[in-house]
């Protein structure tokens, strides 16, 4: 994977994450679910910052940053708090997988960025009901269960 392709893929993921976090936050009551709401706001801010950083990294690599889609499909309806948590967890799991790929396809400061982002996404999963995994972002590295 060429570096610029990895950066673009990661940027596309960040666009989706920012959009999804915005939707999740809008569906969550700040008064009724303050901890979840705070987690969503923090996630939104973090991914928005990463999106902006990646935009710069792609430009530095001499490419035009991939644009965000007008909208993204929700993986499931947001009828209750549990579904909001599941979607947020899925966002972080997907981003962790993307970051781990970028680790493999980068060096130097770009790899450092990806390592930091991977760790943050892995830790953030716990805020949305996730449990620790042996290989967050790369579950196929673990023993296969059959």
């Amino acid at each position: 994977m060429r570096l610029v392709e990895g950066l673009q893929t990661t940027l596309a993921a960040e666009h989706a994450a920012v959009w999804l976090y915005g939707v999740l936050g809008a569906q969550t009551s700040q008064a009724g679910e303050p901890a979840l709401y705070d987690g969503l706001v923090e996630g939104y801010r973090r991914h928005r910052a990463r999106r902006d950083q990646l935009t710069g990294l792609v430009r530095d690599a001499g490419a035009e940053p991939v644009a965000a889609a007008p909208a993204y499909d929700l993986p499931e309806p947001l009828a209750d708090v549990a579904q909001v948590r599941r979607v947020a967890l899925g966002v972080e799991e997907g981003c962790a997988a993307t970051y781990s790929s970028l680790v493999a396809g980068s060096v130097g400061d770009d790899r450092r960025w990806a390592i930091t982002a991977l760790t943050d996404a892995a830790v953030r999963q716990l805020a949305f009901g996730g449990v620790p995994q042996a290989f967050p972002g790369a579950p196929e590295l673990g023993p296969t269960t059959s």
């Binding site: 990806a114 892995a122 999963q125 995994q133």
Partner: peptide, 21 residues
């Protein structure tokens, strides 16, 4: 190796997860 880097990064993230847990 990029693959080895990925393995180590994922292992590090897993330890950080466990520390928070």
């Amino acid at each position: 190796s990029g693959a080895f880097a990925r393995l180590l990064a994922v292992m590090s993230a897993a330890v950080q997860q466990e520390l928070l847990a």
